[in-house]
Design a protein around this nucleic acid. Sequence first.
RNA 1: CGGGGCGUAGCUCAGCCUGGUAGAGUACUUGCUUUGGGAGCAAGGUGCCGUUGGUUCGAAUCCAAUCGCCCCGACCA
Length: 572
Amino acid sequence: MRQSKLVSRKHKEKPADATLASHVYLLRGGYMRLVANGIYSLLMPAKRIQHKIETIIREEMDKVDGQEVMMPVVLPRELWDESDRWDSVGPELLRFKDRTGHDMLLAMTHEEACTALARADVTSYRDYPFMLYQIQTKYRDEARSRGGLMRAREFTMKDAYSFHTTKEDMDDYYLKVKDAYYRIFSRIGLPMVQAICADSGMMGGKETHEFHLLSDVGEDKIVVCDGCHTYYNSEIASAVYQYEPEDLLPLEKIATPNTKTIEDLVKLTGVAPQKMAKMVFYTTEKNETVAVIIRGDLEVNETKLGKLLGGCLFNFATDEEVYKVGAVPGYASGIGLTCKVYADKSVANAYNLICGANEEGFHLKNFNVSRDTPKAEIVDIATVQDGDICPQCGAKMHLARGIEVGHIFKLGDKYTKSMQMTYTDENGEDKTPLMACYGIGVGRSLASVIEMHHDDYGPIWPLSIAPWQVQINAMGLDKKAIKDTAEKLYADLTNAGIEVLYDDRNLSAGVQFAEADLTGIPLRLIVAPKAMAEGKIEYKVRGTDERGFIAVADVLTFVQNWISKEMEKYKS
RNA sequence: CGGGGCGUAGCUCAGCCUGGUAGAGUACUUGCUUUGGGAGCAAGGUGCCGUUGGUUCGAAUCCAAUCGCCCCGACCA
């Protein structure tokens, strides 16, 4: 590719709207352009990178016997009625009517479409197991897209769906895909991506793993055990809480005027927040108020609470609602409440805590859950904090942030059952198959590579996904010797099947180098007068100090060798 | 959906408070000089000042509404 013909305007200044490195460089480097909030057009460099990522994904999906298919982006309501998701999914599902007034949707995922496709085509146990996948545009009407490709409304996703006759087979296959995912992320330059136990959200199903790139700019909170190195999304992470046994002392009322928060109570009493029981009240969409008792220093995990409440929506209760169930805001305890009371594990076997007295200006000492609120249901509802104890191995856990680049789910029969997909087994009986699904955010992976691989000048693309393998820069293209050499180099490398971006614009060195840095091509060849006088050109490896001179006649061999050696890093 | 910020040239932004013919840098076009980290000189083109309405002799500027974008949160993956 000649850079003079490339439509990809570079920008010297940081775009005002971008904060993430990936967002900044995708805009500055002329990779994409905003069309609407969360919706982007990709220019050639980004399209080439994405294409290479897709190729790697295809290779790995094909290795686990995936069959590539293509399902529609626009689906009729009826399909999503079958799984009840037309009603159960929120406004992030874009619904609309076609010209006849028929309800349609823009697919944000394809469980229904794929189940419908498979149930029509596969009827015998002999055809199992199988996996269908596609790489396709998805649309999710995000409440708040952000960070460029990191969280777009329209984005490219690889989604795969496998079907099985037994749980063992599904479990086996799930592991195979999990391994394939590790290979994919490693091959695109993200070997540090980690599988993390997570919540399945609107997809349903039991076991699920998210693939995260641990990064400070990630949106998800991850809990990492320093002992057994298990990773959890904080939505589902749990800790164990151990306490030295104490004798149960009788409740004792203490005066605590103007002490409504844990913080104030700590100041007043000098007691640590770990020795306090905090009350949190929620009111559900069914107008039911529930109370949660939790250790003073911990917070309620609303994903866990949502599950406890059967998936219904909830909000913090108002003061009025708190009074209604027999508590006093700021001085609440779980004792004597008229509503459902949950007690977190963190307070269940703790001793002699301080809690509210349900009386303005007073608290109680020596509160014990089992003795004083025997009706409270003991639940796991706390958000794990830095330094909490791992339930698996007893070591300390710490918090990190992650970018979710992939997510795999064992769906079980959630869709196959509701959509009445069956197969005939060896005895002639109809059975419901099991299903698992596997997603990778292609655009988000691309952005994640920049987050992981960049310097102050631009992205540093891994060779496996670089938009071009080699960049040619020439100093002084108006000189015949320079131009002839650069042109011949470009022709020779291109003819040898090497992907070359040739800056044929006769610009100053500064401009060429700055733009080349933004394009981030791994190997740069520089044709310049000084070295040319000795029949040599210079090479430089992006993002490293590696550089040197090669005789013009040896360049092709050098480049071929360099590429095959560098590609070793990204072998499957 | 809540909080905050911002819409003026391809990009970054000034002008607005105090109304009077639309600005800078950069990018772009042409020529010459340069050629190892965004070079220099000269000349040139560039705008529905987000949109609509109002106030006014006159609105980028004041008022109102609306649309859009960014950040934080909520929601979601």
